[in-house]
Amino acid sequence: MYTLTKRIQLNENTVLISVKAPLVAARCLPGQFVVLMVHEKGERIPLTVADYDREQGTVSMIFQSVGGSTRLLAQKKCGEDLFAVVGPLGKPSDLQGIQKAAVIGGGLGCAIAYPVARALHEQGCETELIAGFRSREQVILLEEMAAVSKHLTLMTDDGSMGEKGFVTDALRRLLEQGERFDAVYAVGPLPMMKFVCRLTESYGIPTVVSMNSIMIDGTGMCGCCRLTVGGKIRFACVDGPEFDGHAVDFDEAIARNTAYRAQEREADCRLLRKAEEHE
């Protein structure tokens, strides 16, 4: 069960894995996620599905090995098993009727933005893709994203590849040139999504964001992933993960994502010890 069939190191700490999970692969759609456990005593980790193969019964996820649990995951080799993979969870992206869109990915968010862009491409949508990274070392999925977009703009914070600047700079330029979109999809760090939404709101362009909240079960049971959308409590796991970005309370979401930072640091030490013992 849940055997790793592929493992690709995309850059220094970003890894793509494919896992045998026929129940997930059979029905998975862009925008949905899985919760996985590396081992029996592990955390439940939510990861958005980057790709799926219904015939092979596999799903692919891209993640950064930054914390203890993701480092343990990154150590798994092809042929080894994960303890649990459950999904598909969350609502699929609602792409109906979109003919012209801007898809914006920030860093690891490109892994989530890419399947959305591909699905739009497959339905004949004209897609502007803007991908932003800290610097050239972090760049992932460049060819894949180029293949499913009309035009791809690559931005890096330090200008080491593509243009120097933020994704919002590229989007602002397009909007100032008079480009208009049926919808903007933005996936990336919370501050990035916040500023994309601020920009598109002034142009009145519907904007969808994908929220990467802390979760346990991923099925609506714990309420850990709650956020405020349009003044109401919503659960990212069952009401999302995609929401109307203009209604999301980003400042609250940013604060909530730090909820277990101190414990995570401590747990990371414990986990990193574990990870090092494995290495």
Partner: peptide
């Protein structure tokens, strides 16, 4: 639910488990 799930299902208080 969150608190009990962390403590009971995920054994967050036990050293050998990873959930915070």
């Amino acid at each position: 639910n969150e608190f009990l799930t962390r403590v009971n299902l995920m054994h967050a208080a036990e050293e050998s488990y990873d959930t915070p």
